[in-house]
């Protein structure tokens, strides 16, 4: 297979699965030319609906993603899934296990699943996920589900790039609901209490409603709270209907779009600039040295950054 950017992009447009998979790899790896490639496809994207799915570990996000996908497919829609798991900070490797709960849709026509590691990119995960979303969009997916464990700030940033954010929790997870309060409360458009066949489901719903009540006083629009049992395929139809029917009011949508555009430019710029400077320093093998200097208290980080940037006369 000719792996030129042109060929890959043409392949994706022709709904070639391997081309899509490879284009994702190359963009994710930031192979030389990736920005130009993304630039070329940008204008052809924007038609897919992107749903961010997050929530506490063990809440059944992957199982729910699988069940929702089956429902979407049955409604004649095509689905792309991006399942994000953390990379190990020690080895840089990752164990990507979300597929374990999605076996039923591995071969379903119209479904494309991609597991993605956070790769410890400095704020870069968000952009990489956005890029993969666009490739799947170009690939013709109607709905793109982006699933992350809602623990790290990075991952919360990722779901924020979605058109609609769904927060999943389960009964008896007092702590989980605390976590939701802390992080994703402000961005949730829809709450799902999964594993609704377990005891304590009504309490969980009541908890969320109580939190919502508090926050609506501060001006945030209310979000529906639904119950599912994804394993038993109960309540899934309703969730799918809810997010397909969900319409953000025009003002809010506009505001969101503006924030997103602004953030994306800033994030690309930040990466570009820091990447540029870091690369030079790494070429000179000075980055590791700098880290060591800080560790040994020979230098402080402020001084190092100043040193790094002063050749540009910025500080």
């Amino acid at each position: 297979m000719n792996d030129s950017w042109e060929n890959l992009i043409a392949g994706v447009k022709n709904r070639d699965i391997r081309a899509a998979a490879r284009l994702i790899t190359r963009v994710e790896n930031r192979a030389p030319g990736w920005k130009e490639a993304m630039s070329r496809i940008y204008s052809r994207t924007g038609s897919a609906r992107v749903i961010g799915i997050t929530g506490s570990p063990g809440a059944g996000k992957s199982t729910l993603t699988c069940a929702m996908t089956k429902e979407l497919i049955s409604r004649g829609l095509t689905v792309g899934i991006i399942a994000i798991d953390p990379s190990s900070p020690f080895s840089g490797g990752a164990l990507l296990g979300d597929r374990l709960r999605m076996k039923e849709i591995f071969e379903t026509p119209g479904v494309f699943i991609r597991s993605m590691a956070t790769r410890g990119m400095l704020g870069g995960l968000c952009q990489a996920a956005r890029d993969v979303v666009r490739i799947l969009d170009l690939f013709g997916k109607d709905i793109i589900l982006v699933e992350t464990v809602g623990v790290g700030q990075d991952e919360i940033e990722v779901v924020k790039t979605a058109d609609l954010v769904m927060v999943v929790c389960m009964p008896g997870q007092g702590d989980g609901i605390q976590a939701i309060k802390a992080g994703v409360m402000e961005i949730a458009d829809l709450y799902v209490v999964n594993k609704a066949d377990m005891p304590g489901v009504d309490e969980a719903v009541a908890d969320i409603l109580a939190m919502l009540e508090l926050s609506t006083e501060t001006g945030k629009p209310s979000a529906p709270v639904l119950k599912t049992s994804a394993l038993k395929n109960q309540g899934v139809k309703e969730v799918v209907t809810a997010f397909l029917d969900h319409r953000t009011d025009e003002d809010r949508r506009q505001a969101k779009a503006e924030i997103r555009a602004r953030e994306e430019i800033l994030s690309l710029l930040a990466q570009e600039v820091s990447g540029y400077i870091l690369k030079q320093w790494e070429n000179e093998n000075r980055f590791c040295e700098s880290v060591n200097q800080v560790l040994k208290k020979q230098k402080d980080p402020y001084a190092i950054v100043k040193e790094m940037t002063q050749r540009f006369n910025w500080s």
């Binding site: 992957s62 164990l95 296990g97 979300d98 374990l100 709960r101 394993l231 038993k232």
Partner: peptide
């Protein structure tokens, strides 16, 4: 009864 779904590693 449904079928058992493995939990992730």
């Amino acid at each position: 009864f449904g079928e058992f779904q493995q939990t992730r590693l």
